[in-house]
Nucleic acid binder design. Structure first.
Lengths: 260, 260
DNA sequence: CCTCATATGTTATATAGGGAAGTTTTGTCA
DNA sequence: TGACAAAACTTCCCTATATAACATATGAGG
């Protein structure tokens, strides 16, 4: 058996456990270990790379959380096969649009106090006819309209959502708000949709054009709904991408951004 | 200062570090720690819960990877504010359709060998005019057509993709295939789309109906493209959901399934 | 009052080791 | 040969400890 040089560089800034993760990933990516194969045992890895058991464990745990391998107690660590179910898409770039930077502009189309109809009342857990705030906005990027946003907010003097929400930046201040946020959590959904006539006019596109509808409901610390609405994102400007499997570049099955 | 009882149960099957994760999550979910707040230092947590530093570290690391907290070396660990960018949507249920279970049926519409046009040649990294396999399929669930799938495959006698791919189960066998898989990794994209005339007829829906188009390109161990195509999923049957923020039930910002 | 060195508190990384639980292999005994 | 027990191996979890790197507070000296 030939003795390979130890690829773990102790003088590097990169921690040993991360180096080990990288080395193992590279070996998997190179096909040295294929789906279903068993990796060397932890003690073997210790000897092979001259690191302590805890370091190996930590590396294995990372690979586990990254979805690259599975472990079976008493049997070994195995390379996971590809599966579409593990893929996930993230909204990375979306938040950039909600904030102000980089030529992003937020146009307030309309704000008014209306009475909740059945649908709104159900979503916000209010009696029908209660007063709620209805808000419509248009997000621009480089002068072009990009996203249409409409949502309903509770209007309760006892709950100071209004003041925080009336700012034009709105959602961003309410979500990632400096200091104490009012919102504890939210539920999101992505639907396939087409533009209706008014949306098409606002977004300067043709009616019936494909779009993503990103629905959102946010809840406060008493788990009461605070806001319900959605973003309409034309399909010609938005898409989600991701990779599955162990690719050479680091960070694999982790999701990738989503705007062209 | 009142001495609270130690919520870490050492006789439990649940590992200490997971219990600690749960406890901290509950405190955050309950509003005991709010976004921006600093969590107790690691040594404080050691004393408070009577566990060793490594156990605390592991718990903190988990919270870190779950996106619940951020850490700043030399300053402390802080509760993360809500941010949409961190949300991710997964394809959990999608794979169920690719396999056979639960009343799922796969109808082979057409398989033929064609010459690659410019687009196909570019995607599969082949010369224009090379022979490729074109395949169209229809996925049914409980008798209803659900997904339309069309893709092109390389047709190279030297690469035994064909035999593995000709099975009706196709993609599933090629991906999650038992034994040695041919595919090392893949690139996925989700686009907003509408049904064209032929798709509408096959899927028994109206033309122009909204849909998701899940594009895919798969690569072999030499990083050469093997397959390119996409799934057309009518919007009335598919959507993605996710939650953002720390919700009472475990596993939060982790993505959620996607079929109604 | 300002500046700079020091001390303290924090997270990050690493080593060494031990025990529990599960699986596989080996070996012994009938 | 067959059945069963023992050993070996593997993953898993935890403890104890040490060092490094970074941030902030403290205090002395000008």
């Amino acid at each position: 058996m030939k003795t390979k040089p130890n690829p773990i560089d102790r003088s590097s800034f990169e921690p040993a456990y991360l180096q080990l993760v990288r080395v193992l990933r590279e070996q998997i990516a190179a096909g040295q270990f294929r789906p279903g194969d068993r990796l060397p045992s932890e003690s073997q890895l210790c000897r092979r790379y001259q690191v302590s058991p805890m370091t190996v464990r930590r590396a294995i745990n990372l690979l586990l959380e990254q979805g690259v391998v599975t472990t079976e107690r008493g049997r070994g660590t195995f390379v996971k096969p590809l599966e579409l179910g593990g893929v996930s898409f993230s909204l990375d770039r979306f938040q950039d649009l909600l904030t102000d930077r980089d030529g992003a502009r937020i146009q307030l189309l309309d704000v008014r106090i209306v009475e909740a109809d059945e649908r709104v009342a159900a979503e916000l857990d209010l009696p029908v006819g209660d007063r709620v705030i209805h808000m419509q906005r248009l997000f621009h990027k480089n002068g072009e309209p990009l996203i249409y946003h409409a949502h309903h907010l509770i209007y309760d003097p006892k709950r100071p959502v209004v003041e925080a929400e009336m700012e034009v930046t709105s959602l961003y201040g309410l979500l990632s708000g400096s200091g104490t946020s009012l919102v504890k959590w939210g539920r999101l959904g992505v639907h396939a949709a087409v533009l209706d006539a008014s949306q098409a006019r606002l977004l300067r596109r043709s009616e019936g054009a494909p779009a993503f509808y990103l629905e959102h409901t946010f809840y406060d610390y008493e788990d009461r709904p605070v806001s319900w609405g959605g973003f309409t994102c034309p399909g010609d400007c938005f898409h989600f991408t991701a990779t599955v499997g162990v690719v050479e570049g680091c960070e694999p099955s982790r999701a990738a951004p989503g705007r062209i």
